[in-house]
Write a protein that binds this DNA or RNA. Sequence first.
DNA 1: GTACGTGCAAATGATTTGCGTTAAG
DNA 2: CTTAACGCAAATCATTTGCACGTAC
Lengths: 138, 138
Amino acid sequence: MAQIKYTNQRVEILDFLKGNTTHPTVEQVYEAVKKKLSRISKATVYQNMKFLAEKGLIQEVNIKGVSRFEPNLEPHHHLICRKCGKIFDFESKELTEYSLRIAKKLKGMTIEASNTNFYGLCKKCKGGNKSFAFEPQN
Amino acid sequence: MAQIKYTNQRVEILDFLKGNTTHPTVEQVYEAVKKKLSRISKATVYQNMKFLAEKGLIQEVNIKGVSRFEPNLEPHHHLICRKCGKIFDFESKELTEYSLRIAKKLKGMTIEASNTNFYGLCKKCKGGNKSFAFEPQN
DNA sequence: GTACGTGCAAATGATTTGCGTTAAG
DNA sequence: CTTAACGCAAATCATTTGCACGTAC
């Protein structure tokens, strides 16, 4: 059960995602993996991202209607600009542990992971007020 | 500034969303509002959902590539099935307050809201093991 | 009165699907 | 071997856009 067939395509996708913190889209994963497996199809990448996310090997984050993925390694949190949709990682073991402690109290649930999203306006979208906003990158 | 023009369309959309905890899609909002304003266009609903979310009057949650919306009232958290994408609300003032306290420590950011997503498998997707999963609804 | 919002239809972009072929276990 | 995965092209679905007309302030 829970068998996973490690095809070349899946191995390369996981390899590319490993340690990657840029939240790549399917398009970006496709472009990267194509360098190793030139004949890979974009549909295969789509199918595998979905498959791997369902298996819990990677995490899906949806930003402004586009799926992005990250390896399911160290738990972390996101700062998301509600206007431009830029996303920034930040770590807080404190918060992660606190959340999981709360999750344990929830009856009848299988919780595998948690993450907290913080919403606001990034520096660029906020406009003038420099001292209170976070900065979008890339 | 930050003027919001309260057109009939926007009023009806906000009215439908008020107190609604079902995380409706644009399609669902459109169907509901059409009962009041039969001539409303789906494009108008799309435009307004985007507009209202940017203004911070509603919150967008993206699940499995589809945008869903909820009124931006009481802060709460989500339980999301990584397989079927079903989403369940749950409240924890404790967690919300804790998160916001952490957010205050972050320099140079304007944080307006936060929410924590818990990921796992719901009862249906987990299959046999009844005692450990949460139940999808709707 | 004027800028902004609306409705419609067409365009776009992301994601999925059908199907004959290929490869993992 | 046999079933699941692949590659490709076509299909689908969510969301956006251009434009002429209407309306909130």
